[in-house]
């Protein structure tokens, strides 16, 4: 019984990780075609990669977008989570619902809405519009992570600080924020990961000038198939896996489950 279960799970694990492993493995092929390298490995497709300006541009764009949106979303998320936890204003549930709505509303729907809306206000293809959309998309992860961090802290430490003469801003800056550091780092990395992996909304609204790495691959898949793509994909996998391992260590992955 136990053995059957374990065997089944091994098959299952092979199934779910097969495409990811294969992409990485394939990126080391020395051949022009997609062949699983067994005898000889080569980094030629990685070298090739750095001669494609388009990919370099996309990588920079993805990086900039990820860092900026994660930074903004973490800041906004902290403020919002703080207001929700310590303030509990009327309609807290509605506000939390709004902040986390992008988790539920299909990305295609938001992509269409942003495509039409950015055209309406004349910001189609503009970087600030794309950045704002990414902040919206990653905000739920920041809010949830920081809500958990703040709820775990309780208000007593702030009360203690304020009873000693600290104004609220000092109590927040000197006590609450330092103690949320782990949550802040988690939120930032989580947001970066989500932004870095975002395809759908970006594809709909970004326009030709702003192709992030995943969008670039999506567009290339139809016409240009060579192992360079595997190399790019492998790099994306590397970044994602590294981030997830760090997030796992920080205990931040629980927020996905809710």
């Amino acid at each position: 019984m136990k053995r059957t279960l374990t065997f089944f799970n091994l098959l299952m694990i092979v199934y779910v990780v097969a495409p990811i492993i294969l992409v990485v493995w394939m990126s080391f092929t020395p051949s022009m075609r997609f062949e699983v390298p067994i005898a000889s490995f080569s980094l030629r497709w990685y070298q090739e990669l750095f001669s494609y300006d388009a990919f370099i541009d996309s990588a920079w764009l993805s990086l900039r977008l990820g860092l900026l949106s994660a930074l903004i979303a973490t800041a906004l998320g902290f403020l919002a989570a703080y207001g929700l936890v310590r303030g509990r204003p009327p309609g807290s549930a509605v506000l939390l619902g709004l902040f986390t709505a992008p988790l539920i509303v299909p990305a295609v729907v938001y992509g269409i809405a942003m495509l039409q809306f950015t055209n309406l206000v004349g910001l189609y293809g503009a970087f600030p519009a794309l950045l704002a959309a990414h902040v919206v998309i990653v905000l739920p992860f920041a809010v949830r992570t920081l809500l958990a961090a703040l709820e775990g802290q309780g208000p007593e430490l702030e009360w203690a600080a304020m009873s000693l003469g600290a104004r609220r801003r000092h109590a927040v800056l000197l006590v609450t924020l330092p103690l949320c550091l782990r949550g802040m780092v988690s939120a930032f990395l989580f947001c970066f990961l989500i932004s870095f992996s975002e395809v759908t909304v970006t594809l709909f609204m970004a326009g030709p000038a702003h192709q992030t790495l995943p969008v670039r691959i999506f567009n290339y898949v139809s016409d240009r198939i060579d192992p360079t793509m595997a190399a790019v994909s492998a790099l994306i996998v590397l970044v994602s896996v590294a981030l997830v391992l760090v997030l796992n260590r920080l205990g931040a992955l629980g927020t996905v489950r809710k």
Partner: peptide, 20 residues
């Protein structure tokens, strides 16, 4: 008066020491 202006000393059940 706000808490910070009251010149009180407050000791909590869980002490509320700043752990950092």
């Amino acid at each position: 008066a706000p808490i910070w202006a009251r010149r009180i000393g407050l000791v909590f059940q869980n002490y509320a020491l700043f752990p950092h």
